[in-house]
Amino acid sequence: MPAPPQLSKMPTSPHGGEVTIKPYLVGVVLALVLTAIPFGLVAARTLRPIQIFVVIGAAAITQVVVHLRYFLHLDLKPSSQNKLIALCFAAIVLLILVGGTLWIMFDLNYRMM
């Protein structure tokens, strides 16, 4: 087996640039907040259920973005472009498939009643 090629640099982040602890700390703090809010609301029930659902949803979407940005280092730079395109396409397909499923299945359910 041939010897491994010599890479002159030490391993760095695959996204180029230094890997620092800052994004992870920021991400964790934001995630904690975005977790505490929905859990807290459900525990305390200070709003009407439908309003709590909206908050849960908004917090979830925001927290997902936080994870993508701070933990997965997905940003708008060219180095992330291919992944971002794949993610957007996946999101579109996901919306069509999940949305379509919910529409179809609830429509069928309604007609079964």
């Binding site: 397909v93 069509i96 498939l97 379509g100 179809i104 429509d107 069928l108 309604y110 007609r111 079964m112």
Partner: peptide, 16 residues
């Protein structure tokens, strides 16, 4: 990706 229901038109979905 957006047309799959046409494989089961007769299985009870509404006209919409």
């Amino acid at each position: 990706f957006a047309v799959w229901l046409h494989h089961f038109f007769t299985l009870g979905a509404s006209s919409d």
